[in-house]
Design a protein around this nucleic acid. Sequence first.
DNA 1: AGCGATCATTAACCGAGGTTAAAACGATGG
DNA 2: CCATCGTTTTAACCTCGGTTAATGATCGCT
Lengths: 176, 176
Amino acid sequence: MDFNTLFKNEGVTLNKEKGDHVFMQGEVDGSIYYIQSGLLKAYYTSEDGKESVKSFIATNDIIGSLSTALSEKNCSFSLICLEPTTLIKIPISRLIEHSKKDLEIANSMIDVLLNLSIKKEIREYEFLCLSAEERLNKLMQLQPQLIEKVTQNDLARYLGVTPVGLSRIKKRILKG
Amino acid sequence: MDFNTLFKNEGVTLNKEKGDHVFMQGEVDGSIYYIQSGLLKAYYTSEDGKESVKSFIATNDIIGSLSTALSEKNCSFSLICLEPTTLIKIPISRLIEHSKKDLEIANSMIDVLLNLSIKKEIREYEFLCLSAEERLNKLMQLQPQLIEKVTQNDLARYLGVTPVGLSRIKKRILKG
DNA sequence: AGCGATCATTAACCGAGGTTAAAACGATGG
DNA sequence: CCATCGTTTTAACCTCGGTTAATGATCGCT
């Protein structure tokens, strides 16, 4: 069976408004979501209430809470819509069941996980090897349309700095 | 077919000394390695010659250059042995071929990639949400034996600071 | 128009960590 | 035992970004 067919046959379609949460940090949400349209933000809230943005998720992306799925409570996160969003939800357990029986599904899973790993590897590299300013420059080059859509606060927390810090960095870039 | 059997049947065993490289940054090494014994360091070298440690790889771990495999040259890295090391090498293309035909292999791949993704997610979280000091504390709790084995320089570059910075952090931790 | 609310910028101060260089602490070999 | 090399620590100085708080800017609401 085809991966997209699986989503269409067994998935549940959800329509969410801007500001709606898909799930909250701490909840065990054993699902994978395919984003049909819209924009979401995955974020961590620390004990002292500070927010860090893990990722933005756009149309055609797939997002799921891998770690909660495997009961790694450490880095469970919240998922919220930044725009009206349509997503298709399917339990990870269903995906794994199908993977055990169906070669095509299994290989789609491998594709998804490979792409996910590469994205994470790139982000890991950016934190390890680049400064906040360099991370911003790279993002401006590769995803300028994203920067237009999100607030400075979310953008800053995604880059690993505060909104105040981001403002300073932008100023520095403009001056040359 | 079993995943371990595949490694044993089709893999090539390599014996490396401390200081030997398995591959260098920039090379296209389309292989996956299973570490039978030993300890390795994966690291990036930036244009100005500075080194950042991506990860340490120990016995029973699996490591491969995902991004070079998919010709993402951005974050290609070098792999060097910190101890005498025995590894089994297999081309990624072989793994993918088998995955296309063999459910068991495909599901082993899924397992490996899921674990890899979770590891990367945790590290991503640590850079985004924790300070260098917190990252060190966590590492001391979870992998004290690793800290014994690696130099302060490698440890510092893994935590995202300089050896001088790490020395300061250790001092601060001891004082309370 | 006027108001509060949210968001972005700016300024002043502070602390963590980078940089450079020197010193201390090993190990090893002659 | 001393010389040397690599590793770790210390010290002095500086930059970046956090923190707090004040100021603008923009939007929606009545």
